[in-house]
């Protein structure tokens, strides 16, 4: 069986460095398999977050050879194994230990957002009528598995550390899924403009590129939200036009 070297970030917030581990690799393996093998054989106490191992839960986010990925979907045969494979935690969040970061900020952001508020039911049995074509685009947003890789690559968070003023791509997708929901009645545009900081996004599409669910975050969620914010708050000519027309 072939062997490969994995250069894994080990340590905690106080001190951490790369440590090399050599392990056997077989056809079809993903990075998470190698991490598990190393954990079981050589580093029992290594911290790694994972659950489904099938790209459905969004727990095992990390940076593999510098690229933000789900470790369970990162195939070894897509990587050059003649050199060490580096595996690091997401860099936009505080390190807890080894490959595990503190992502609790994301959960707090969501809690602060205005929840779904449906209109009264359409039918007597308490249900609503919605056309499939009217929900297709929201179902795209609802594919999100909350892996937070989009948050990890967003320079507003990663480089500028504006966690207090900017909610990040994940939560613009969430806001879009609520704002465009056919039966939602809430208005979130003021928050999007002010406390959520949508203006900071300069549409570099880094988030879209790393999304493992292939959600077109920038084009389908962020840009339409930006347009709504602009229409609502920044378009005096349009407003005047509306008044006189």
């Amino acid at each position: 069986m072939a062997k490969a070297t994995f250069r894994i970030w080990r340590g905690d917030a106080n001190a951490a460095q790369f440590v090399d581990y050599e392990t056997e690799v077989a056809e079809g393996m993903v990075v998470l398999d190698a991490i598990h093998r190393i954990q079981a054989d050589q580093a029992n106490d290594m911290a790694v977050r994972w659950n489904c191992k099938a790209g459905k839960c969004g727990s095992c986010s990390a940076e593999v050879n510098g690229n933000p990925k789900l470790m369970c979907m990162a195939r070894l045969n897509d990587l050059p194994l003649d050199e060490p494979v580096t595996v690091e935690p997401m860099r936009a969040f505080p390190l807890i230990k080894d490959l595990v970061t503190d992502v609790s900020w994301n959960f707090k952001v969501k809690e602060k957002m205005k929840p779904f508020a449906p209109r009264p039911p359409d039918a007597e049995d308490g249900t609503w009528r919605m056309e499939q074509e009217d929900i297709d685009h929201i179902q795209e947003f609802r594919k999100c598995i909350e892996c937070f890789l989009c948050q990890d690559v967003c320079h507003v968070l990663r480089e500028h550390d504006l966690h207090e003023e900017f909610i990040g791509p994940r939560f613009f997708v969430y806001a879009a899924s609520l704002e465009m929901h056919p039966i939602d009645t809430e208005n979130r545009l003021e928050e999007l403009k002010d406390s959520d900081g949508i203006g900071y996004c300069n549409i570099t599409k880094c988030c879209t590129k790393v999304c493992p669910e292939h959600i077109t975050i920038t084009d389908n969620a962020i840009i339409p939200l930006k347009e709504r914010v602009v229409d609502e708050f920044y378009d005096p000519i349009k407003k005047l036009f509306r008044v006189f027309s």
Binding site: N44, D45, V48
Partner: peptide, 9 residues
């Protein structure tokens, strides 16, 4: 092995 912090083993 190791300490009590996020210790999978």
């Amino acid at each position: 092995i190791g300490n009590r912090e996020y210790n999978a083993g």
